[in-house]
């Protein structure tokens, strides 16, 4: 009963936030529209990571592999159709990029997901670096030369606003997917894997297939986001999509907001992006130090993230009453 009511409250709040976010560019200065793009992109990436990392407890350190594959495979497919209308190119790129991510993730999933904990995390970092190096050094990928992307915007609309709205659609779709997964049998199966994989198997959870499915879903979303991101930049090289800071941030968003929750990565992404781009925007020399300090404080002071901290505070208040 209360569960249903709180779920309804959350749905209403999310829809209101979605409408507010969609209208925000009307009042925001162009700089903040760009920051907003980055917040939405990061939140969606964080959510995609959380489908495997937050729900099933498999922390990938290599999400950038799929961002890169999505962007480069999609971009190369689009280049084949250089004469077609940009919107059609984009759709073809989307199909090619996500298909490549799905196939590669499915091939990697079974061997890599046999590893647990730190070994999985580091193996994924290795995977991301292998793809990055290959992308950069094999000529057909044009990783070091760079790849240009057509402007797919709508005439008359500021491209920054257009990409903002596109990222918003992507982020909302990711949130919806994560929410549907979280409340499904599949989602509960993933949670049980995070809690105790052997016991989950004993209860009949097909752990291998579930992990692989979560891995593929997470990879495909990352790939789609990578392609949109590439379009928003207009021109990318290996270094613009295969980034170690993306690998790290995908985790930090959940860690900062709350591991395993849906709101966690969104809050985490918003705070981190605003902090580094707005608050510290003028202190570039200070970025790395600030991020590092944030990580240290986070691990020591709020190991269960801001959502966990808030729950704890609310819980304490209730007890006092």
């Amino acid at each position: 009963m209360t569960r249903q009511r709180s779920e309804r409250t959350w749905i209403c709040l999310s829809l209101a936030a979605l409408v507010a976010a969609a209208l925000a560019p009307l009042v925001l200065a162009p700089f903040y529209v760009r920051v907003g793009q980055l917040v939405l992109y990061s939140a969606a990436l964080g959510l995609a990571w959380a489908i495997l990392g937050g729900f099933a407890g498999y922390w990938s350190f290599g999400q950038s592999a799929f961002i890169g594959i999505g962007a480069f495979v999609g971009g190369l497919a689009e280049a084949e159709l250089a004469t077609a209308p940009p919107a059609l190119q984009f759709l073809v790129g989307l199909a090619a990029g996500s298909a490549a991510c799905a196939v590669i993730a499915a091939l990697l999933a079974y061997p890599v997901l046999r590893l647990r904990g730190i070994y999985f995390a580091i193996a994924m970092l290795g995977v991301a670096h292998v793809f990055a190096e290959l992308n950069n050094n094999i000529d057909i990928f044009q990783g070091s030369l760079g790849l240009t992307f057509p402007n797919i915007g709508i005439a008359g609309l500021d491209p920054h606003v257009f990409y903002y709205e596109l990222f918003l659609v992507a982020a909302a779709a990711t949130l919806l997917a994560a929410w549907l997964i979280r409340r499904s049998r599949f989602g509960y199966g993933l949670l049980s894997i995070r809690e105790d994989e052997d016991t989950a198997r004993m209860l009949g959870v097909p752990t291998e297939h579930y992990k692989a499915a979560a891995f593929v879903v997470s990879a495909v979303i990352a790939g789609v986001l990578g392609l949109i991101y590439a379009h928003s930049l207009g021109y990318i090289t290996t270094g613009s999509v295969y980034r170690d800071d993306t690998n790290l941030n995908a985790i930090v968003y959940s860690l900062l907001g709350g591991m395993g929750t849906l709101i966690g990565p969104i809050i985490g992404a918003a705070i981190l992006v605003v902090l580094t781009h707005v608050v510290l925007g003028d202190f570039l020399d200070f970025h790395m130090f600030a991020t590092g300090l944030l990580l240290v404080l986070l691990v020591l002071l709020a190991p269960s993230g801001l959502v966990g901290l808030a729950r704890k505070l609310v819980g304490r208040k209730k007890v006092r009453r």
Binding site: R185, Y188, G189, L191, S192, E195, D196, D198, T199, A200, M202, L203, G204, V205
Partner: peptide, 27 residues
């Protein structure tokens, strides 16, 4: 089904969710 000697509950989940997961899977 098997019940372990040393109980291995899903510690972060509620008792009800522990049982719900078993109900969703299992036979």
């Amino acid at each position: 089904a098997r019940a372990f000697q040393i109980a291995r509950p899903f510690r972060d989940l509620s008792v009800a969710d522990n049982l719900r997961i078993a109900g969703m899977f299992g036979k």
